[in-house]
């Protein structure tokens, strides 16, 4: 079955250079591991770092035949490329803006070399919302990219803040989705996890962050203002599908609730899609499938942090109607991104 994987990451050398040159967070440092090998350590935030093996860095930098060969081996027809986080939004604005432009150009070139295998989402220096909106428009209309990717909060500020509305409105007007990628949670929450650094990222902190971000967007009334806006979450919806009923149930009771036109779940069901990135377990999948339905789920791996092979075998093995599987594997992504079906 044809497969388009939605959340697949890359780095450019220009971005790595910027991270090596950066003095604050995030920055890339050399370190020596237990075996005496030198590797890269990504200092993401105070109290949260990530070791980047040469293999991972090599895979992230490969936007060519090595990546295509890995896709062939796993039976993945197309990747929707987006830059790995933490992104250029963390750098100072002039640097970030210039890098975003370069990275988007470079991405478009890689796609132009293999338009049958790659499509992509724009990187945005969204600390400058107006500038990011303009870059999104350029990336979509001039470069043929299919949407944008956001790496969650900026130093604890979430994108429900009124000043980011222009970015959301631009995405809605262009009819392109925005992928909302998690980040280590902001400082306060990070403190709560600090004793156990293993919890700060994908094991727990990411889901807390991206789910919080999504619920803030919903609670802010963003989707009353932008009813056609589409947000894509990874990791089977960052736990929100599991909570959806309870969120509705208590949202309507709480005296602290602000006025929304609809129940929180209705926005989640209409304005969000989720991908299977890094969540290859059937019970969770079935919960999300029953909660959201096949029209709202897209296949993804989260390469190179997860294995293509594992993601592809997982989606092939789930027991759901064939038509639903086709939607999840490729149909929904084709529809959302306006791709022509090759089949």
């Amino acid at each position: 079955m044809k497969k388009i994987s939605f959340e697949e990451h890359f780095f450019t050398n220009s971005h790595l250079d910027a991270l090596r040159a950066h003095k604050g967070y995030p920055r890339l440092e050399k370190f020596t591991d237990q075996n005496g090998n030198t590797a890269d350590r990504l200092m993401r935030m105070p109290g949260s770092f990530q070791d980047m093996s040469a293999t991972i860095v090599g895979r992230l930098l490969d936007l060519g035949e090595g990546r295509v060969a890995a896709m062939d081996a796993a039976g993945i027809d197309m990747q929707v490329l987006s830059m790995a986080g933490p992104g250029i939004e963390e750098l100072d604005l002039p640097t970030g803006r210039a890098l975003a432009k370069d990275i988007n150009d470079e991405l478009a070139e890689a796609i132009a070399r293999r338009p049958d295998r790659f499509t992509g989402l724009a990187t945005l220096a969204y600390g400058d919302p107006e500038g990011a909106a303009a870059e999104l428009e350029r990336a979509v209309t001039k470069l043929g990219l299919k949407g944008g990717k956001l790496n969650s909060h900026l130093a604890g500020e979430y994108l429900d803040h009124r000043k980011y509305r222009v970015l959301w409105e631009t995405a809605e007007r262009l009819g392109v989705p925005m992928m909302l990628h998690p980040k280590d949670p902001p400082a306060g929450v990070l403190t709560a996890l600090a004793d156990y650094p293993g919890l700060t990222q994908a094991a727990w902190g990411f889901a807390f962050d991206a789910a919080t971000h999504s619920l803030r967007l919903i609670a802010s009334g963003l989707f009353d203002a932008c009813p056609k806006l589409k947000i894509v979450l990874g990791h089977l919806g960052e736990s929100i599908p599991f909570w959806l009923w309870r969120i509705d149930n208590h949202w309507t009771r709480s005296p602290m609730t602000v006025a929304l036109q609809r129940r929180p779940s209705e926005y989640f069901l209409d304005n969000f899609l989720v991908s299977t990135s890094g969540m290859f377990h059937d019970p969770q999948f079935q919960c999300v499938y029953q909660t959201l339905g096949a029209d709202r789920i897209m296949f993804a791996v989260d390469y190179p942090y997860e294995a293509m092979e594992q993601g592809a075998r997982f989606i092939e093995g789930i027991v759901i109607p064939e038509g639903d599987k086709r939607k999840i594997c490729s149909g929904n992504a084709e529809k959302l991104l306006g791709l022509k079906s090759v089949e």
Partner: peptide
């Protein structure tokens, strides 16, 4: 039936 043809059918 749902497992075979899905909700669209």
């Amino acid at each position: 039936a749902h497992g075979i043809v899905g909700a669209d059918h």
